[in-house]
Write a protein that binds this DNA or RNA. Structure first.
Lengths: 342, 342
DNA sequence: CTGTTAGCGCTTTCAC
DNA sequence: GTGAAAGCGCTAACAG
């Protein structure tokens, strides 16, 4: 690139290139886009001219004629949320590999703002929209009358006609408890987070199923409150007081698990020898800096984002989206809190 | 919105609106864009027609004629990084308030991919670009010959002609240590992270300046290794062994601080009574779940993002960007690790 | 006030 | 193979 493309304040156009190459703009277009109805020698002249002018094809103009913009909107309700980011990354990644660019819009949990962003995206003629919610609780649908395909990721739409992708928290709960059982634990308790979250309830269901399948029952009631480390500490104290013989704990989140582990240690229980602990989220920073490191269920969020992107891709290509909520597989990452290092 | 805008698979155009309203397309355009050279009654007819067709102005076409796209590119090298997100949010927020939309591009630390994304952004005729780096170490410039303004946020450009915005880590170090001193601490140590990071070195400089100003000297050498909780633990053990009389510790990050606090407690020191601890980053989840909660220096990242957006705004409006690295103020958030609750 | 007429930069028939 | 011409949807003069 030289300063040539700043000359006169505007970028070189196909017309400029055509003129320099001594061909028509139609030919220039074909040459640059690699159509084969162009003589090799001509193509070279055009390419050279384009290079010389550091020509940048105007995607806006191209989109106008082609009817597709090659962009999609990522509509999130809460960028801050720790779960949104991986989904975003996955989607951005999947699209970035192709020729699609992503508009990022954060509604900050405000539906007015969301509506505003939606309109802007539609104005910009995005080819599709991915809505990334902040929790796995259903969120209001954007509606059925949108001119572009929409996929809901992480938070499903409350309208079953929409296509939604969410992590399978129930399977996650089951995975967690089955792991404890396979580690020989029998007196298992469940300390979870905020029960108003679908994630908490779904995981509980999975945990109970896993226990039932092994003909076991949870030690005490499931302890619900919030997703904090503090609660993990308090709940553990409570639990050990009532059920000192507990030998396994499924935690609702890594944060809770951190509190749980710390308190177990404070109260003289060693992890995982006396009590094995498994949690959810697999938040690396928390999980790997814990002592011992946390075994945790990973929701494969990045993959979920990629899946959402794939759905949009397909929908753009005319494949009708199935609709309904699809639960994507999660995976267990085993670390020292359930199996001692040797 | 009805299904009318899906009819024939394409959205209504200004021409459609004009026809229904019984006016020319020029008049329709003026009416919709709120120009005042239109009779109120005419305007109403047009607006009604637009509504009826659920007309969405095609931003692509508009951009094409206007010469500005109303978009900016957010080029990050590492979405995963905990520091780029707040910057992103701030920028998105600042733009979102206006009529500008943001293209998100994650190069994943790969310069080839970055070049690729840059080209795509230029093709899409973004009006400006914000480059968000993953650390405060200088990064390669995108070059001077770009047709749009560029601002570097968090990671400065290595070319002084570029405009860069970074948090003032040196001031942060000073802030941290001055706080400890004002809490009556005199035997202060510094446990930091990876010394290859500019952030670590800048903060150290600030810490030393603050100490020197108070005619004090750091207890022992600054301990460098990495930014982990594990290192915080190890370093603390080391420190207490060599300097059991330490009464204040500046930590390079909240993660380190978590390890430090835990080990202090394990070794029988109470925080903040025996040893006051202050750290950097103010990562809420870590800082507020710690026991006691962490006093920490916040880099005001979101504000930094907003500032970057403002710069781009100005540059788009023709205000020449100053160039050079600007250090943005940081702030200290005081919690229980330096001042005991009463 | 309203309509006509040029484009914006590019792709795409469809002749030559 | 190549080029002329007709748009894509909209805005901006400039006439009426």
């Amino acid at each position: 690139m030289t300063q040539s493309n700043r000359r006169a304040g505007r970028a070189a156009t196909l017309t400029d290139v055509a003129r320099i190459a001594g061909v028509s703009i139609a030919t220039a277009s074909k040459a640059i886009n690699g159509r084969d109805e162009v003589a090799p020698s001509t193509r070279k002249r055009v390419i050279d001219a384009a290079e010389q002018l550091s020509f940048t094809p105007n995607a806006l103009a191209r989109s106008l004629t082609e009817g597709r913009s090659g962009t999609v909107g990522l509509l999130t309700s809460d960028l801050e949320g720790r779960f949104v980011l991986p989904v975003l990354m996955g989607a951005e990644d999947a699209f970035g590999a192709g020729a699609i660019n992503v508009f990022l819009c954060d509604a900050r949990g405000d539906s007015i703002r969301e509506q505003h962003h939606l309109k802007a995206l539609l104005n910009r003629r995005v080819d599709g929209i991915i809505v990334v919610g902040r929790s796995t609780d259903p969120r209001p649908s954007l509606g059925q009358d949108l001119p572009v395909p929409v996929v809901y990721a992480y938070a499903p739409s409350d309208d079953p006609r929409d296509a939604s992708l969410v992590p399978d928290n129930r399977a996650g709960g089951r995975l967690a408890v089955e792991h404890l059982i396979s580690c020989g634990r029998r007196r298992i308790a469940h300390i979870s987070g905020d029960p108003t979250f679908a994630a908490a309830r779904d995981r509980e269901i999975g945990v109970r199923e896993g226990m039932a399948d092994a003909d076991l029952e949870l030690v005490g009631d499931v302890l619900f409150s919030n997703w904090s480390e503090h609660w993990g500490r308090d709940a553990t104290a409570l639990l050990l007081n009532q059920h000192p013989d507990v030998d396994g704990i499924v935690c609702g989140s890594d944060q809770i698990a951190r509190g749980v582990i710390e308190t177990l240690r404070d109260l003289g229980r060693s992890v995982p020898e006396d009590v094995a602990v498994v949690s959810h989220d697999n938040w690396e920073t928390l999980a790997t800096n814990s002592r011992p490191e946390l075994s945790s269920v990973d929701a494969n969020l990045q993959q979920l984002g990629r899946a959402a992107a794939t759905r949009i891709f397909e929908a753009i290509d005319g494949v009708e989206a199935p609709g309904g909520v699809e639960h994507l597989p999660v995976r267990l990452v085993i670390r020292g809190s359930t199996i001692a290092r040797r």
